Amino acid sequence: MIAYDMDPKLDLVLERTVDVAPELVWKAWTTPELIVRWFAPKPWSTSSCEIDLRPGGRFDTVMRSPEGEEYPSSGCILVVEENRTLVFTSALASGFRPQNTGDGFPFTAVVSLEPAGAGTRYTATAIHADAAARKSHEEMGFVEGWGAALDQLVEVARSL
């Protein structure tokens, strides 16, 4: 597990225990063909995903609104600890190249998986640069959206 300083003024956290093994949650998080099945909370969808699963690799998705508008997101993987930790950021493109995130706000996602009986203690943290970015992400529906996506991930993982 990586160590970082959690700051409740800057960070948002979703924690839950789910009834699928860490290996299946990991597979759902790191396999593009599976990510497109769960990553966007319905009625949104994910139309594409590209992952190069290594530090400096890409984590790119395209989310599609119910009206058909597409929202690409490009990011860089920072940490890969198989079946335990995935860290990526929208502040960087692949190869650790800084990037302009356009109208959005950059953040770093830390996904931590810990065995919990036959299931997984799942913690997703969104780390923000400032309180305004955190507030924007919260108002966009971080808890509801990431929670709904986790429910969808669990359904996909159960089918594996």
Rank of each mutant, 00 (worst) to 15 (best):
V20C: 00
V80A: 08
S136V: 02
Y122F: 15
A124D: 06
L12C: 09
R37E: 05
C49Y: 03
L14P: 01
V62T: 11
V143S: 12
V143C: 03
G102E: 07
S47F: 07
T108K: 02
S73V: 15
V36F: 01
S136G: 13
K27C: 05
A132N: 07
R16A: 01
V80M: 13
P8K: 03
S159K: 06
R121A: 13
V18G: 05
V110P: 07
D130K: 09
R54K: 15
G147D: 09
L160H: 10
R58Y: 01
E81Q: 08
Q152M: 10
V87A: 03
T125F: 02
L53W: 04
P66L: 03
W44H: 02
P72W: 12
V79M: 09
P106M: 05
V18H: 04
S94P: 12
L53D: 05
P32T: 08
M140C: 10
S65D: 12
N100W: 09
V143R: 15
R54W: 06
L24S: 10
A21Q: 07
I127Q: 11
L86K: 04
A93F: 13
S74D: 11
E155M: 09
A109L: 09
A109F: 12
T46F: 03
L150R: 00
G57I: 00
T46H: 01
W29Q: 13
R64T: 15
C49S: 15
R134H: 08
A40F: 00
A109M: 14
R97N: 15
Y4S: 00
R64E: 12
E70A: 02
G147K: 07
T46I: 05
P55Y: 10
W29S: 07
